[in-house]
């Protein structure tokens, strides 16, 4: 890790004044330190935002849920009222990383973490995402890579939390000196076809200042399921968030979002269409899961992900409805 200067901001304005060339925001620092240790990032100055109290904490009222971006994953996971109304979000926070990481890593940092593709994380591979010529994963070691939208770059978005936040139509506050933009999370994540060198629409002069989730319609139930390679803490092989608004036994609105299978959280319109207007039973869940994976395009070593994904989609739909 190269040497750097360190500044702690206490207000958003103070942090914004620090942003610029050679500056890097640090929340929990888990992702940033990893990249710095790998020599992928060498900021001249780190701007610590963990000391900005206005960015820390969870609020719930009739209009919805607001998660301050520096709230730790552990706090999001343990927040009882949040769990009551937004279960998939709490479960995703709880499923991410290790207990030790969750005590430090923040919700905002989790959404903004850079790819975990091993070619990206290894400094010697000058891949598309680092401004190079191509994606090494496409013909390389790709067992953990994308099965959707993988033509240009086969990274998967590594965040667990982003998946249910997408299912709940979260909106992000992005603040610069000029003011605050409100960007739906569905357009916040940028696919490789738009720009393979960045994953999000966050501008260099902006801070993520709030994660807002509109109150779901009454009768909404949700679930998040993460399939890992081992039972203990691990990255997702695939994740699924399902939110269902059910009235009189029929699905009025379905959200099915898939994680760790594409470069962005992947909304499955085919699965949502297969559920809407139906009663949820085993057969409906099975049809929706089959529809979701119908257009998957696995690479040489990740075909197993299709079967894993189909299974967990079916189970998570049934779990959300139960």
């Amino acid at each position: 890790m190269d040497r750097f200067e360190y500044v702690s901001a206490t207000t958003v304005a103070e942090a914004l004044a620090q942003l610029g060339e050679g500056r890097q925001v640090k929340a929990g620092g888990i992702d940033l330190l990893d990249r710095m240790k790998e020599g992928l990032s060498s900021p001249k100055r780190i701007v610590n935002i963990r000391t900005i109290s206005e960015l820390d904490g969870v609020e719930i009222d009739a209009s919805g849920l607001t998660i301050g971006p520096t709230t730790t994953l552990a706090t999001v996971a343990a927040h009882e009222p949040l769990r009551d109304s937004y279960r998939a979000i709490a479960d995703a926070a709880r499923a991410a990383a290790t207990p030790q990481i969750r005590n430090v890593a923040t919700a905002g940092g989790n959404l903004l973490q850079r790819p975990r593709c091993w070619y990206f994380r290894e400094r010697d591979f000058d891949c598309l995402r680092k401004g190079g010529q191509g994606c090494f994963a496409q013909d390389g070691a790709n067992r953990y890579h994308a099965i959707f939208g993988n033509d240009l770059c086969a990274m998967v978005h590594p965040s667990d939390l982003a998946v249910p936040l997408t299912a709940f139509d979260a909106v992000l506050d992005l603040t610069s000196a000029k003011g605050t933009r409100k960007v739906p999370i569905s357009t916040f994540y940028v696919g490789p076809e738009t720009d393979p060198t960045r994953e999000t629409d966050l501008h260099r002069d902006e801070l993520l200042t709030a994660i807002r989730v509109p109150a779901p319609p009454p009768g909404t139930r949700s679930a998040y399921f993460k399939q890992k390679e081992k039972e203990s803490a691990d990255w997702p092989l695939a994740g699924v968030a399902v939110a269902l608004q059910i009235s009189s036994g029929v699905v009025q609105r379905a959200s099915v979002v898939l994680g760790a299978v594409a470069a962005t959280p992947w909304r499955s319109k085919p699965a949502e269409a297969a559920l809407t207007g139906r009663a949820i039973d085993e057969a409906a869940a099975r049809r929706a899961a089959a529809a979701a994976v119908a257009d998957a395009k696995p690479l040489a070593w990740n075909g197993y992900k299709v079967a894993v994904l189909e299974t967990i989609i079916r189970r998570t739909i049934l779990e959300a409805a139960s």
Partner: peptide
């Protein structure tokens, strides 16, 4: 102005 800067030393 602004908060104190520590390091790089």
């Amino acid at each position: 102005t602004g908060p104190p800067v520590y390091g790089p030393g």
